[in-house]
Amino acid sequence: MTETRPKISLKDVHKAFGPKTVLDGLDLDVAEGRSMVVIGGSGVGKSVMLKCILGLLTPDSGSVEIDGVSVLGLPAGERDRVNRKVGMLFQSAALFDSLPVWENVAFRLLSDGTGRDEAREIAVRKLAQVGLRRNVGHLSPADLSGGMRKRVGLARAIAGDPEIIFFDEPTTGLDPIMSGVINELIVSCVRELGATALSITHDMASAQKIGDRIAMIYNGRIIWNGPADEVAGSGNELVEQFINGRTGGPIQMALRA
């Protein structure tokens, strides 16, 4: 097996908010062209980890590298260059309410100076890729259902043909059938682009569908990391309790703050 440089690499990442430690020495590597899914309960630091990679939060210590380049403390211009490799599907889709759907999808293209007609055509193609018709492009995000918003968010994430795509709870709030549709779209889009994907979710069906590998985060660290098809037989008590949704076990949910 050849050793290749990971596309995304986190080493000993710490992040605390006041007295609350969220990430406590987190290590994670994502190989190029692979799809990694990080699972874990609510409030264990999945979103914080993602925000640290995206530069939306700064870790207290540790390193975050993309393509072997440390992205912590990068000047704004260089950070922008890194972000141009990245697409992101937010949990709530985070579509811009003030813009019609097609401008949301083509936002990056328009910012980069692509003409409006050309950008609109690319947006229509990307919308078609996620199963939405041309006329949806002229709607306002407020007119869309939850599933359609996710699809538009996905179309926006892939519009710039990114090398890396992040998915934040892609199926949260969707019915099982729509969740399945979104999962299949994610798999097909990532495969077509040949992109590296990093998803966070607590939906096990989604994790097994979209991930080549699964890692579990607990108490601010990765406590298990392995192929997606081995998660059920991981032999790790914490992982088994989580994927089976058992209330009894080593993971104790805090019922009071």
């Binding site: 972000n83 949990q91 811009f96 309410d97 936002f107």
Partner: peptide
């Protein structure tokens, strides 16, 4: 408007789309 964009992650989305 900006407050709603902040709490619905639209401000974060701008950053990820290389827009300050």
């Amino acid at each position: 408007e900006i407050g709603t964009m902040r709490v619905t992650e639209q401000v974060d989305a701008l950053t990820t789309l290389s827009t300050n």
